[in-house]
Amino acid sequence: MPLEIAQRVDAKGLACPMPIVKTAQAVKSMASGQLLEVLATDAGSTKDFAAWCKTTGNELVESSAEGGVYRFVLRRK
């Protein structure tokens, strides 16, 4: 199933908690079911995004890391 990204957040270089904060702000403007892609370089973000999704109820569709860049795809609940 091809994933159609509705919005992107580039949080590369930003330190905690700004990737999460920017994600929360972006998700607010999205419709339910839409996908958000987040790129981050903060080493704590893999756990942080999982925790954020668990608490907020949004779905973590994809979580990957490549060359120090973490990529997350989230589905707005």
Binding site: C16, P17, I20, A24, W52, T55, T56
Partner: peptide, 12 residues
Amino acid sequence: MILASTSAAMGV
């Protein structure tokens, strides 16, 4: 400030 903004960002 970090904890407050993160907490709010988590919908709490």
